[in-house]
Amino acid sequence: MNKLLSQTAVAAITLAFAGEALATEWNVSLWGKRRAFTEHVEKLAELVSEKTGGEFTLNLSYGGLSNNRENLDGISIGAFEMAQFCAGYHRDKNPTITVLELPFLGVESLEQEVALSLAVYNHPATVADLARWNATLLMPSPLPQYNIVGAGDAPAGLADFEGMTVRATGGIGKAMETIGAVPTSTTASEVRQAMDGGIVEAVSFAPHAHMSFGTIENATWWTTNLNPGTVNCPVVVNTDALDSLSDEHREALMGSIEESLNHYIANYNGATMDAWGPALDERGIERVTFSDDEIAAFKDAAAAPAAASWIEENAARGLPAQELYDMVTGMIAGES
């Protein structure tokens, strides 16, 4: 009898350890707080857990694992398995992706932004670029065209940006330089403090970030149609962690990407944009709209030189820069 009980106990313990062995937990490094920008990651975590009966879980951390500028570094050393980052935070670490941050590309929707991003992410040069960091790109965080919120007197024309300190990263920053602004790359988490302290006079963001990071709280104006471009902020995974997943867990993860992105887009185009106009109205923020001629001149001054510079710089790195640029602009032209 005792022998039978012992065998039963051993079997139970063995099953328990087997169950534990099947469980997979990934840590995910984000920043700020839950917002429109992270809704696809939230949805992905929900779907993965549902599909695996809780055996595969994504533990989302908003700032508890890493500084947002160091998320790619954390991925490279396996400090966590998944993270979100923005290409403009460290252009030298991910030069292939920055083609998507060139000014005035003419992207008109979040859906188009997703298609462009996935095409670039799947290009062999981009795969190799991120492989240097032991990283695999999972999905984009599509953002609409950026516009600027500022404090003080509203600009009457683009000439009024001369000497203005503007938080603007990547290609948007380069574009703002062409009209005399002084771009800075303050991180999203630090930008409200920088604005309140007068370190920056204006901030370039998508609508959700202006609301999430409080830049509209002391703002007096917002540009409605500057639309110089956007930033590209992928969700990335540690390649070793991805390769070590069981077939079931890998399918649960990869098979949930499309639904997660669809959820993100529906939320951004719906709840987020529905809240934007009232948020401006409640605070009495003036809407500034520039003439078509000024916008056309801005585009002429910024777009071609930025593209030429990007192609030259990245071709010198040995990247197929012209090919990447032609792919992106060709896709946009084909959908227009």
Rank of each mutant, 00 (worst) to 15 (best):
P95M: 04
F17L: 15
W31M: 12
G53H: 05
D92T: 09
G53V: 12
L22P: 00
P95H: 00
L44M: 15
Y62E: 12
S76H: 11
F37R: 13
G106P: 07
V99S: 12
L15M: 05
R69V: 10
F37I: 13
R91S: 09
S49A: 15
I97D: 02
D73T: 02
G54F: 12
R34S: 14
N94Q: 06
G53A: 14
G19F: 13
F17T: 10
T57C: 02
G78L: 11
V28H: 13
N71V: 01
V107D: 02
P103Q: 02
A16C: 04
N94F: 00
G78V: 05
V28T: 15
C86I: 06
V99N: 06
D92I: 00
D92R: 11
E25V: 14
A45V: 08
V41T: 12
L60H: 06
E55I: 07
W31G: 06
N67K: 14
G106E: 07
L65D: 01
I77L: 05
E39V: 11
I97F: 05
L58H: 11
A87P: 03
V99H: 02
L22M: 05
V99K: 01
L65S: 04
L100R: 00
N27A: 07
E50V: 03
S66N: 10
G74P: 01
N59W: 05
T98H: 08
W31L: 12
D73W: 03
T38N: 14
V99G: 07
L72S: 08
L58E: 06
Q84C: 02
E70A: 13
K51S: 07
A36Y: 10
T96V: 04
A83F: 03
T38Y: 14
A87N: 03
P95V: 04
L58K: 05
V107F: 01
S29P: 13
D73Y: 04
N59F: 08
T98P: 00
E39L: 15
D92C: 00
N67P: 01
V28Q: 10
R91A: 11
T96W: 01
G74M: 05
T52P: 12
L44H: 08
A45S: 15
K93R: 09
L22W: 06
T98D: 13
K51A: 09
T24V: 15
V41R: 03
S61I: 03
F85E: 07
G19H: 11
L47F: 03
I97R: 01
A16Q: 05
E101N: 01
A79K: 11
L22Q: 08
I77K: 15
Y62H: 13
E46P: 01
A83M: 02
K33T: 14
A23E: 12
E55A: 15
